[in-house]
Design a protein around this nucleic acid. Structure first.
Length: 578
DNA sequence: CGTCCTTTGAAGACA
DNA sequence: TGTCTTCAAAGGACG
């Protein structure tokens, strides 16, 4: 089922997964997001509970009940989200978006995806034009010139698309949408979002004719900058800052959910008030508010703001007069995912703490299929490109030091004993027993799989596999050595493991952790899966890989990760196996 | 009020 | 080149 809308149920097409994971079987369908989420939550909660006090076994039941709502705004978010989801579903059923060639980007087809950076209606004509030009790309993802080297044949992609095991109502790509229009800028035609391309002049949706568009495809620079905008096809009709949000603004992450004209009409009445928000602050040179820009006045980042830090970026997006706004880093794949899914998770559980939520999200991330992750990687890549185009001179370094130093001083000097030092609580705190769940990965997983994860560690939530062993190791509780342990698995290279997060690392270092990995040398399904398979893989992951070998596309996106895998020493295998 | 927590990933800084 | 650190989001918790 190539298309997202999936054939199976309107539930989002997670069917593919269903196929993949027999364990879950059809239940999966029913299970749907809630269940998976609950599962996660259960784990989390129970763990939390247990940890702090074993008081309740009731956690399960507790979570079962959906929290009514936490905050008004949140509520609205949720509603909006649901609403949109519903609309999307309907529309999908209706066949609004008939099968994009590349299943991976079903929603991307929707023009209205807002662009995180360029927002709103302020979109200049040229920008729109640009948008149009880019669309074709979506139509022919495979070939089009995506540098990703994704498979040329859409078909093949479509076949494999496995995807979604945990049913999310929201497509993973929605994060983009997120950026979108939280508010319409005044004067901007409600162009929203229709799958069709809007005529730049008329603003009327029209279906682009390939022939007319293709010529533009390679798009020469100039339209937006010197380089074709990578996200051109994502250009929002109305934008909204993804990064900077007006303090009082409507922050719903999903407001913009991909919608087409019909959808917009549906919701417009409902949300328009919210969507109309004060003009964005950080305007790009072009006058377009950029989400990544945080104007000093707004205070989006409580921490930074010191004038000195403000972007020394050689090429301040804004005029100097504006004081250099703080330009945020582009979001990475996981961040995009988080952004999208957070609300969902939050809505499904009573947990409020972001740390806990993030843990869940982290696990879910690992449980995503490669394709799904690939989408996010791709999105992130585009974001980076876009960001670089918008802020040519910007560098991550500009933001360094803006946030006070975070934890971690764990300098190397700290000995094992030290790690306990950490002022705060241990990692376990949040995810003590996270074991069961879905992703084996999360904790140490990150070390092993993480970067590579995309390919490997995607365990299905349901999958029985790897679970038991690793669980919470008692020690892990105490420790969480901030980190280090990299060495052991440094193979990951700079890969994710690096980050101080290391929580996982600690456990792994002990090696005790054991994922039940299968070190089966399979090669089965995939012609190429080998690299991945060559190393121990969580059962579920394995399953995954077998079903869906890395596609060229995926490889491109994640190729680096693969490399990592390949390089993985066998030692790992031995490690766990015992 | 500021920072921590927590996640992954990207990128800068450093050895 | 490899390792380590920061920051990105988010929002409750904590000092």
């Amino acid at each position: 089922m190539p298309q997202l809308n999936g054939g199976g149920g309107d539930d989002l097409g997670a069917n593919d997964e269903m196929i993949s994971f027999k364990d879950e079987g059809e239940q999966e369908e029913k299970i749907s997001e809630n269940v998976s989420a609950e599962r996660d939550l259960d784990d989390l909660k129970s763990s939390l509970v247990n940890e702090s006090e074993n008081n309740s076994s009731s956690s399960d039941s507790e979570q079962a009940e959906r929290r009514p709502q936490r905050r008004p705004d949140l509520e609205s978010y949720e509603k909006a989200r649901d609403y949109f989801s519903e609309a999307l579903r309907r529309q999908q059923d209706g066949g609004f978006f008939k099968s994009p060639h590349y299943p991976g980007y079903p929603f991307l087809m929707i023009p209205d995806l807002s662009n995180p950076y360029l927002s709103n209606g302020a979109l200049s004509p040229s920008a729109r034009t640009y948008l149009q030009m880019k669309w074709p790309i979506l139509d022919v993802p495979g070939s089009a010139g995506l540098k990703d080297s994704r498979s040329p044949t859409p078909g093949h992609l479509s076949n494999k698309v496995p995807v979604v095991q945990h049913a999310h109502h929201v497509h993973p790509l929605t994060p983009l949408i997120t950026y979108s229009n939280e508010h319409f800028s005044p004067g901007t035609p409600p162009s929203h979002l229709s799958p069709e391309i809007l005529d730049p002049k008329t603003g009327i949706p029209r279906t682009p004719h390939p022939s007319e568009l293709s010529p533009y495809y390679p798009l020469s620079p100039g339209a937006v900058g010197s380089i074709a905008h990578p996200l051109g096809w994502l250009m929002p009709q109305q934008g909204q800052p993804m990064y900077s949000i007006p303090p009082g603004g409507f922050r719903h992450p999903y407001p913009a959910l991909a919608m087409n004209a019909s959808m917009s009409s549906l919701v417009s009445s409902r949300f328009s008030p919210h969507m109309v928000s004060p003009p964005p602050h950080g305007l790009h040179q072009t006058g377009i508010p950029h989400p990544a820009i945080v104007s000093p006045g707004i205070k989006q980042e409580p921490h930074d703001m010191s004038p000195s830090m403000h972007a020394k970026s050689p090429v301040p997006p804004k005029k100097e007069e504006d004081k250099r706004p703080h330009i945020k880093k582009p979001l990475n794949a996981f961040m995009l995912y988080m952004k999208e899914m957070r609300a969902k998770v939050v809505a499904e559980c009573t947990l409020k703490e972001s740390a806990a939520i993030n843990q869940i999200l982290g696990r879910r991330w690992h449980s995503l299929s490669r394709e799904e992750q690939a989408k996010y990687y791709e999105l992130a890549r585009k974001e980076r490109q876009l960001h670089s185009q918008l802020y040519p001179g910007w560098s991550a370094r500009d933001n360094y030091g803006k946030r006070k130093k975070r934890k971690r001083d764990n300098k190397p000097d700290s000995k094992p004993e030290d790690f306990s030092i950490r002022s705060k609580k241990q990692c376990v705190q949040y995810l003590p027993s996270e074991k069961m769940c879905d992703s084996p990965a999360s904790s140490h997983g990150s070390m092993l799989d993480s970067p590579a994860t995309p390919s490997a560690a995607l365990a299905s939530p349901a999958a029985p596999a790897a679970t038991h062993s690793e669980q919470a190791q008692p020690l892990s509780l105490t420790t969480k050595p901030e980190g280090r342990m990299h060495h052991h698995f440094s193979l990951a290279g700079k890969a994710s493991g690096s980050s101080s997060s290391s929580s996982s690392s600690s456990s792994s270092s002990s090696s005790s952790h054991s994922h039940s990995h299968l070190s089966i040398p399979i090669g089965t399904s995939g012609s190429h899966s080998t690299p991945i398979l060559s190393r121990p893989i969580p059962f579920t992951s394995l399953h995954h890989s077998m079903l869906s070998p890395p596609s060229p596309y995926h490889q491109a996106a994640l190729h680096s990760h693969h490399a990592l895998f390949q390089s993985q020493p066998l030692s790992l295998v031995t490690k766990h196996n015992d």
